[in-house]
Design a protein around this nucleic acid. Structure first.
Lengths: 216, 216
DNA sequence: ATTATTAGATAGTGCTACTGTCCGTTGTCA
DNA sequence: TGACAACGGACAGTAGCACTATCTAATAAT
């Protein structure tokens, strides 16, 4: 398969494929001559994966490269894989956040692993996930938006259900399967969850305010 | 309060405040002379709100302006407010998506409002929320990532719990309170949910793979 | 009186994700 | 065999976005 066919098969412009090749997001084809190369189905899939990550996944090129790196070389699948995946995906955080509200919540839920980090964890100082929560909570606060504690509990319980289902289904046969599952699951399921929340809000709204009286 | 004090009170550079003024995200101060104006606490709060929306909320300037517009003029709080909020926040979608898988899922859950739109709804053609779900599912598919149907059910149920809690708590006294609640709740709770998911994943991972044997 | 600050206008910056152009080489079809 | 499209590779250019810097004339502070 030549580059133009690869382009046609994926809908990605040739110039963009070249760009991804330069950036190392897509492996080079097999050279048949100094200026010709052959691509195959693996390239098609890889290209689709890249588009999913930078498109719906919202990752930058650099973050995409990092994520793909983990998938390509599933080095220590049992050693803090989640941490690596989250690190690659998380937006970078300011370092002057007040984490006490986040820590208090996490403590209340008994999520001890997040606040009393375990060995083998990328626990350089404060936990990345807790910091992320702290930033999100600070934004709510800055906006003057109050979330009642028991609704935070509802959120936590709902996300714990989600997480348990995900961790229970984690494939343990192959290391690379586990890595792929965690990394892609982290990135690509997020938009699914957000989309579902919106649909569910609409449904719940109609249930509470039945039409006739038009809904909110 | 002069603009430099407003800057000091919020940590936002003067040049940026001027920019937001130009863009109409922050209202002008009260003029005391052709080239002087006074700002007050309302400006401080507004500025914090703007920073929360464009920062953690991840909104563009244009989307922020639209969201603020809804908050400033809560015109028809009962008329498809959710739709407006979602529209302002949702990333723009390609129009060549296959919505059948999304529609099938939504049908299976009996979320009829999403697929048989109600009167008073911004239902121009296919539902915006369903389209968002369709795009997210297509990305998963392109990446070769399979989500089992019963896990989709878990996701749907979890998000329905979330949504019900949110709609139940919706303030009905003031129209403007309802609008503010819906709009900010849509935008600013998303990062909270995602942060919680990450923490819950870590916790669930430690629960399933107890340390000693280091966790995933 | 001097110095700092202001509103407003306009231009510029830094970043990111591509996109376009050129070159010399190679495949392909007539 | 010759014309012509497609190729890889290098590099410059572009578009959009969220600011940021500079300037001017007027006003405030000391």
């Amino acid at each position: 398969m030549r580059i133009s066919e690869l382009s046609r098969a994926t809908g990605v412009p040739v110039a963009t494929i070249k760009f991804y090749l330069r950036e190392g997001l897509v492996p080079e084809g097999v050279r048949t001559s100094p200026n010709q190369a052959q691509y195959d189905d693996a390239h098609v899939q890889r290209l689709r994966l890249v588009r999913a990550l930078v498109g719906v996944g919202g990752l930058s090129i650099a973050a995409t490269r990092e994520v793909l790196g983990h998938i390509d070389e599933p080095a220590q699948p049992t050693l803090d894989l989640l941490g690596a995946a989250h690190q690659a995906v998380a937006p970078e955080l300011p370092d002057d956040v007040d984490v006490t509200p986040a820590v208090a919540l996490v403590r209340r839920w008994g999520w001890s692993s997040c606040v009393d980090p375990v060995e083998g964890t990328s626990g350089d100082g404060i936990d990345l996930g807790v910091a992320g929560l702290a930033v999100a909570l600070a934004a709510l606060d800055d906006a003057g938006f109050v979330v009642e504690p028991d609704r935070m509990d509802t959120y936590a319980e709902a996300m714990m259900r989600v997480a348990r289902a995900e961790i229970d289904d984690l494939p343990t046969e192959t290391p690379s399967a586990a890595v792929r599952y965690v990394v892609l699951g982290t990135v690509l399921v997020e938009p699914v969850l957000l989309a579902l929340r919106r649909l569910a809000q609409r449904e719940a709204s109609v249930a509470r305010f039945p039409p006739a009286a038009p809904h909110v």
